[in-house]
Design a protein around this nucleic acid. Structure first.
Length: 293
DNA sequence: AAACAGAGCAACCGCATGATG
DNA sequence: GCATCATGCGGTTGCTCTGTT
């Protein structure tokens, strides 16, 4: 990147400030917007007396000063929604942010990078890999669901209506998004290879999801304006929703049998690494046992 | 207590897109 | 159709804080 933060640079005849905003600048910006409203950021930058670019003013307002911005940790609902929507859409942070009222794309982006990629690092798995997504879906999702209660939305968002504000994502959307996790199955043999490279079993990969009536998924589309059909195929992003059938080695099998099958690394890494972070070991074991009956 | 490392996050940049003349 | 400007988005940087040694 050219230029360090905190320095200033010429813009026409004016010396532009950069770097962290001061309280005085914040106050000035807030008051200006209170009187003149948002938008026309370059004009705002010139007329407000702020020695900042319009871009900088906009960013500061949207990411920090705007009154409805929510602060603090992400709730389980929010965490799960971020995961699901990122799986679906990739790094479309502004789009994802539309479904998390009060959260900014920047905040979500930072959250994803720090939290998710930290988990992936600990598991020694690529955060973008199917292995990691499956691990999160099967180990983390149920825990989030336990902690989750979704009040009815006050308004339904639409993918093409960026300015629509909601208090919560649509209940049906969330239920459908979360549904695949309830279909997780543990089989006696892992379909994963070492080092994060995965081999999926195409014969069973969507069996559980396919049990769902397609109409229910279409209903979600109508409500949310976004496509969550698990029946679509094609891009990897779309395929991320075909993961209703999660495969991990059974907990009761011996280590030797895993070693023989050559698929212990991912699983062991998972079990050895997750205890101090996203998942607690006790809860994870409990969840796994529940699933296994 | 000091030094160091890593995480978190605010802010910057380049690029894409849309609006306007 | 083209040029210019404004706005928005996603990737990246680097400062600050916190935990560890």
């Amino acid at each position: 990147m050219s230029g360090k933060r905190g320095s200033s640079k010429k813009h026409g005849d004016m010396e532009l400030r950069r770097g962290p905003w001061t309280l005085a600048e914040d106050t000035l910006l807030v008051h200006y917007i209170a009187f003149h409203g948002e938008g026309r950021w370059n004009l705002l930058a010139r007329c407000s007396g702020l020695k900042r670019t319009g871009k900088s003013c906009r960013l500061r307002w949207l990411n920090y000063l705007k009154p409805d911005i929510k602060r603090g940790n992400f709730s389980p609902e929010e965490q799960h929604l971020i995961f699901e929507l990122q799986s679906k859409w990739g790094n479309r942070w502004s789009r994802i942010a539309q479904y998390l009222p009060g959260r900014t794309d920047n905040e979500i982006k930072n959250y994803w990078r720090t939290q998710m990629q930290k988990q992936a690092r600990q598991l020694k798995i690529d955060a973008n890999s199917t292995v990691f997504r499956d691990a999160v879906r099967c180990c983390w999702t149920p825990r989030l669901l336990e902690q989750t209660s979704f009040p009815q939305p006050t308004q339904t968002p639409h993918a093409d209506t960026a300015a629509t504000a909601i208090d919560h994502p649509p209940r049906d959307l969330v239920q459908e998004l979360f549904r695949p996790s309830t279909h997780c199955r543990f089989e006696s043999r892992s379909s994963y290879e070492l080092s994060g490279a995965e081999v999926r079993n195409p014969s069973t990969s969507s069996a559980q999801v396919s049990d769902l009536p397609e109409s229910s998924w279409k209903r979600v589309d109508e409500l949310s304006g976004i496509e969550f059909s698990p029946f679509h195929s094609g891009s990897s992003v779309d395929n991320a929703h075909n993961l209703g059938d999660c495969r991990l080695p059974p907990m009761t099998a011996s280590a030797d049998s895993y070693a023989a099958s050559g698929c212990t690394t991912t699983y062991n890494n998972c079990m050895n690494s997750v205890g101090d972070s996203l998942w607690s070991m006790d809860e994870l074991y409990g969840t796994l046992k529940t699933w296994m009956g």
